[in-house]
Simulated assay, not measured.
Amino acid sequence: MSFYGGPRSCIGFRFAIAEMKSLLFHVIRGFEFKLAVDEDALWSRSGILMRPQLRGSNKTELPVVLTPLG
């Protein structure tokens, strides 16, 4: 385990996390996100985390349409 905690943990652990965040930011900003359904069709189940669900469905889902930006 290269990023294992403890006295012999990887010294580049924090840098690797920052690099992944940067990569994810650059990939995500190239798309436009829109809901694929009306907002009225969604509700959120509360618990430790709020999870979006479609009304009448028992699955956790948030349908979106991704459009690449030119």
Score class of each variant (00 low, 15 high):
F31H: 08
F15A: 13
L66T: 09
E32D: 13
R55M: 04
R14K: 06
L66V: 04
I11L: 12
R29I: 14
S2E: 13
A36K: 04
L23K: 11
E19Q: 06
L23F: 10
Y4E: 14
E39C: 11
R51P: 00
E61Q: 12
S57F: 13
S57L: 11
P7W: 08
V27P: 02
S46Y: 06
E19C: 01
S46H: 07
R45N: 05
Q53H: 15
S9L: 02
S57A: 12
L66I: 03
G5K: 05
D38E: 11
A16M: 05
F3C: 11
M50D: 14
K59Q: 14
K59V: 08
L23S: 03
K59F: 12
D40F: 00
L54P: 06
G30P: 07
M20W: 01
L69N: 08
F25C: 06
Q53K: 15
T60N: 09
G70D: 15
S44R: 14
I48R: 09
S57H: 12
E19R: 09
T60P: 00
L23A: 11
F13Q: 07
S46C: 00
E19Y: 05
T67E: 03
R8F: 15
R51S: 11
L35P: 00
L23N: 04
A16N: 06
R14S: 07
S2D: 14
V65E: 07
K34W: 00
P7R: 14
T60W: 02
I48D: 08
S44Y: 15
G56I: 04
S46L: 03
P52I: 05
R45M: 04
E61M: 08
V64L: 11
D38K: 10
R51C: 03
F13R: 15
L49R: 14
F25Q: 09
E39N: 09
